[in-house]
Design a protein around this nucleic acid. Sequence first.
DNA 1: GCGACAG
DNA 2: ATCTTGTCGC
Length: 236
Amino acid sequence: MTTVPIPAGWPATEEEARAVQDELRGRVVTDEPGPPPGSGHVTGVDVAYDDERDVVVAAAVVLDAAGLGVVAEATAVGRISFPYVPGLLAFREIPTVLAALAALPCPPGLVVCDGYGLAHPRRFGLASHLGVLTGLPTIGVAKNPFTFAYDEPGARRGAAAPLRAGAEEVGRALRTRDGVKPVFVSVGHRVGLDNACAHTLALTPAYRLPETTRRADALCRRALQEAVTRQEPTSR
DNA sequence: GCGACAG
DNA sequence: ATCTTGTCGC
């Protein structure tokens, strides 16, 4: 497994990173409904870190949208390309995630990201950024509301309430399990919000988080352990 | 100025 | 994200 290089010209400062977001945000496509839920491929991507050893591992897991079975998976290993800064998460994850997607043997279809798309300080979160760079339809499903406001949705699975930045609806708080904390869905690229929520519900038949992110999370953690174990075979 | 802040 | 065992509850 080769290590993904940090791209030439990758932002080195927060100021540069914000400038990149401001430049690319205009390329987000929001007037396409996106692929219909329940057909084709749905791919989850996630990343795990070992900041101490400067290792980051990304995983991409392709599921059959109809039965949610695993169709393909891939991982990639890289170096930490940016510190974690709220609002700049994409610069920390994207190089390695792109490599994992590129390593897949089949088209990803809709990509489901851990985090936000348009629900972002500059309306250009990880999911939107990844969508613009790949051209793929993407959505973001986050576990926390970040700085956004929302009213508690109804207690039943399927209930939803707007995720708001002031009066603007930047996403939706969506209940995926009865009585359990909602997830926070936002549009990434080339998908509508209603459709993004429909996909999220289709991907959560049993747990709060989408099967895509659950599978990708488990895979990148496993791969990270293997990567650092190989790095120091006789530590201790 | 201070605190909050996706992963 | 990550550090980390058991435990209460459906």
